[in-house]
Design a protein around this nucleic acid. Sequence first.
DNA 1: CGAGTATTTGAGCAGCATCAATAAGAGTGG
DNA 2: CCACTCTTATTGATGCTGCTCAAATACTCG
Lengths: 229, 229
Amino acid sequence: MLHVPPIHSQSYVGALRPYHSHSLTAEASSALEQVGTDLQKPAKSVVFRQGESADFIYFVQSGALRLDYQIEDGRNLVLDFLWPDRFFGIMETEVYAWSAVTLVDVHLKRFRRNAMLALAQDYPSISTLLLQQKTASLMAAKNHIILMSYPTATSKLIGFLLAYSKQQDYFDPIAQVLTLIMSRKDIADYLGMTFETTSRIFRYLETENYIKKINHRQIQLNIKKLESA
Amino acid sequence: MLHVPPIHSQSYVGALRPYHSHSLTAEASSALEQVGTDLQKPAKSVVFRQGESADFIYFVQSGALRLDYQIEDGRNLVLDFLWPDRFFGIMETEVYAWSAVTLVDVHLKRFRRNAMLALAQDYPSISTLLLQQKTASLMAAKNHIILMSYPTATSKLIGFLLAYSKQQDYFDPIAQVLTLIMSRKDIADYLGMTFETTSRIFRYLETENYIKKINHRQIQLNIKKLESA
DNA sequence: CGAGTATTTGAGCAGCATCAATAAGAGTGG
DNA sequence: CCACTCTTATTGATGCTGCTCAAATACTCG
């Protein structure tokens, strides 16, 4: 059975509590189950591309992805990072407005959009689910905007690290070690800076004892110090 | 019969926008009508404040507003500008995560959140409407992120002017004159820069004949030149 | 008309981008 | 397992953009 936990927040905007604390009814859940198929993708593979026909809606069962928006000037913008329990690809348009790329091996559930939207007409709890998931996307976008509005690259990166450290799959709260599954460039493209700046700020944070690099992808965080910065 | 335009439709000039839509059935429409009340607000008034109990959902019938997010460090961030045909204040949390402030005199429709969400359980078309409106908010946020990612203040401001000039209430396509209903500071707080920079870029755009200032709030745009920049 | 607010403009400096060169790590095949 | 290649990350030097602080001007509203 497909169990969708209530949205939890990694947010600066505020904790996100569902209006009705709820998951799907048993009937809605099994109806959804019948139109969904399991799907596995290796790391660094494309789930869908910007501009492709938006025929499917996806759900992250495990792993992580990033959403890329290709700008006309050639730059790539990372719009969001997706973690387990998130739906994505819920478009109102014919085509996907951005691409979805896996960062690690992922386990997805895939639904035909037509089928899912038809079910939403019959099962109010599916409509509510879709609305909650859209809300989750919107809150993530608002948090992203807030991060990008920070006046310095240092505060942006600190904000990013603190938000990221809420992801229990990649942060060990005992050892305080964060496993970076995305590249310096991905982080830079998310925060609106160059990857050289990202790298330099990591260096600066280490000299000031905010973090300690174990290797390129493993970083020990001094959470308290980062939070008070 | 209720008629709400699809989210990508263009607004028509001057008239009051009904929230009635193709997506709402007659029953859903009249049910909604019974829980909605008309509301007028003068320019520069607060519709709701960040942190207040999120009891109402609003619909813009005419006018324009901005959504403000107050950051702990004292800065104010403009998250979005709202135009006619947009719902706002659809929260999943107990309280509003940002404030809504009118830029000009506005005509709103106000719905009790409890009532509206209860109706959504009975009328699938109301759920669809809410989902569409969330999508509109999300697309606006994504466009905002794209704007903020532009590498220079000049390109951000050009992007803002071009997007804003799609608002037929405030852009005269014959004279090519855009009426700015928000301050330099509002624009700066939306784009993530200082208002001095906003002012300087306006000056620069005028020297390069991208725009011509009629006065502080009326600006003639050379759309073609701006688009090719 | 006067007081308060919004906007413009100036000077100097800090932070980030750019261009460039190394270094570290990951992947592959012998 | 090592040698080779390719990718990712780091570090350096330099210049420009946009921020800060400051002052003057324009506009708004009672």
